[in-house]
């Protein structure tokens, strides 16, 4: 009898965590996406490329390195679904949104850093993912996505016929 109660309590806690993960995690994610959309709209005119040749650069100002970092955690619901999916394999579509959020957030931070230093374009953008949670070296490590975006911020040359092509 006591064993049954114990099992019931455990299932109850797991269900509660799943509920919290699904509810709070979902709300957090939707809110983050909404914020990302509005901030991306704000920086629509900002020229961001991953070209190594600096396009339309103003030769009077040397560029500088700018970076943007972001670490996004998973929630209990996502981890649970992923664990189930891992049994049969295939694409873990539930984790795609984490990667997306982390990348977009770090790009926006990169742009913000460039703009605060008075630059109006970023080129040669690179992404690196870091393993801060140690999830690759230890199976118990918590799931999170850590992204560092780096690029060269520079000033664009005064309006030319090229620029109309860009915007």
């Amino acid at each position: 009898m006591e064993g049954l109660i114990g099992i019931a309590i455990q299932i109850g806690i797991a269900a509660l965590l799943l509920g919290i993960g699904f509810g709070v995690g979902g709300v957090t994610e939707r809110r983050h996406f909404k914020k990302l959309n509005s901030r991306e709209f704000l920086y629509k005119g900002f020229l961001v490329t991953n070209l190594s040749k600096i396009p339309y650069a103003d030769p009077r100002s040397p560029g500088t390195l700018v970076t943007g970092e972001c670490v996004i955690a998973t929630d209990y619901f996502k981890s649970f679904v992923a664990k189930l999916k891992k049994i049969i394999g295939g694409e873990l579509r539930i984790y795609l949104s984490l990667m997306d959020r982390s990348r977009r957030e770090s790009i926006i931070r990169l742009i913000e850093s460039a703009q605060s230093q008075g630059f109006d374009a970023v080129c040669n953008v690179r992404f690196v993912s870091a393993d801060v949670g140690g999830s690759t070296s230890n199976r118990k490590g918590s799931t999170m996505v850590a992204i560092i975006a780096s690029g060269t911020a520079y000033k664009r040359a005064e309006l030319s016929e090229h620029q109309t092509m860009v915007s």
């Binding site: 709070v24 957090t28 970092e69 670490v71 929630d75 870091a130 918590s142 850590a146 560092i148």
Partner: peptide, 27 residues
């Protein structure tokens, strides 16, 4: 803090800060 955040999701500000510091140090 990360353990709690792993239940509800969202940004791990402490870890982001860690990443910023590491990047600054290595540069």
């Amino acid at each position: 803090a990360a353990g709690f955040k792993n239940m509800v999701g969202g940004e791990l500000k402490g870890y982001t800060q860690l990443l910023v510091e590491s990047r600054r140090q290595s540069v």
